[in-house]
């Protein structure tokens, strides 16, 4: 493809590729390698023992519980929001899109703060909850709520991106052919967006498992009870048990790698690459 007269000569091309590879190697690959090499520093026996630690196991369980609630809820929300936003015109649509993207632009610490201001003892509905002996902040519900907040836009964004890129003609055809709303959704829309949705779900999962700042604010850091995996990693790290910390971190790193693989698979699907001219990542550019 590189023809004569293109802006890159062979040397320039080689230089640019080298710069990129080097930059990525230092900033992206090296940290990943560091996670796995440190975790396995003291051998696989130590690695497995670190993972089997009861407190680590409890943190894994809480993280899984949080993820198993946050991801399905946000996926259902994402489908509803995607359908409403990409299929209809209504006043305030742009505003709604902006509001949905808000959690992207809020510092996780501030996100946690906001939930304390709602559900904490001095907060908006905190006293009401307290009177009924419902504890949200410094307890599991708070962790779940902040995780929901942080991962809220991810699935919605992917669904909106695919639906907007693919247009609504196929749904309209199905409608003229006599399909009901449910039939249109199940037979046309869902198959059409499944890879985008799949990536959105994977991304939500990775983020839900890995959320640190926001959860850190609302968790009471009670070991075995309100410690999620990332919080537990912090504790282990601060106790100078780096190998155990990294061992736990490998679990989250694997989830992240699975997400990247999911995206790569999605982009390989025929019919998706061409249609999604700008595979807008959820976090960059808000909405397209």
């Amino acid at each position: 493809m590189a023809g004569v007269g293109r802006s890159g000569t062979q040397a320039g091309r080689f230089f640019l590729i080298s710069v990129t590879v080097l930059f990525f190697a230092v900033f992206l690959l090296a940290p990943l390698v560091a996670v796995f090499s440190t975790a396995l520093q003291k051998g696989s026996g130590y690695y497995l023992a670190a993972l089997a630690d009861p407190e680590t196991a409890a943190a894994v369980r809480l993280t899984l519980l949080t993820t198993c609630i946050a991801v399905p809820v946000n996926t259902i929300f994402g489908l509803c929001a995607g359908w409403a936003i990409a299929r209809y015109e209504f006043p305030g649509k742009t505003l709604l899109k902006t509001v949905i993207a808000l959690p992207f632009s809020v510092s996780p610490v501030i996100a946690g703060l906001m939930f304390i201001l709602v559900y904490g003892s001095g907060g908006l509905i905190g006293p009401w909850l307290e009177a009924r002996h419902i504890q949200v902040i410094f307890a599991v519900p708070g962790i779940i709520l902040t995780t929901l907040f942080v991962t809220l836009p991810l699935a919605a964004h992917e669904v909106i991106a695919v639906l907007e890129a693919r247009g609504k003609e196929e749904e309209e055809v199905a409608w003229t052919l006599g399909a009901t709303g449910r039939q249109i959704f199940c037979r046309i829309t869902l198959p059409k967006i499944k890879w985008g949705l799949f990536y959105g779900v994977m991304l939500s999962t990775a983020r839900a498992m890995g959320e640190f700042g926001a959860v850190s604010v609302v968790s009471g850091h009670i070991r075995g009870l309100t410690n999620t995996l990332p919080l537990h990693i912090e504790i282990l790290y601060n106790q100078y048990d780096a190998v155990a910390a990294f061992a736990a971190a490998t679990l989250l790193a694997l989830a992240a790698l699975a997400t990247l693989a999911a995206k790569a698979v999605m982009e390989l699907r025929p019919g998706l690459r061409g249609d999604r001219s700008a595979p807008g990542p959820a976090y960059a550019g808000g909405e397209k």
Partner: peptide
């Protein structure tokens, strides 16, 4: 009358074939 009950066969400009079928 909604399109579902109208029985008007429509062929779109770019056909809008169901790509997954």
């Amino acid at each position: 009358r909604p399109p579902r009950v109208r029985r008007a066969g429509m062929v779109f400009q770019h056909y809008a074939l169901f790509g997954h079928m």
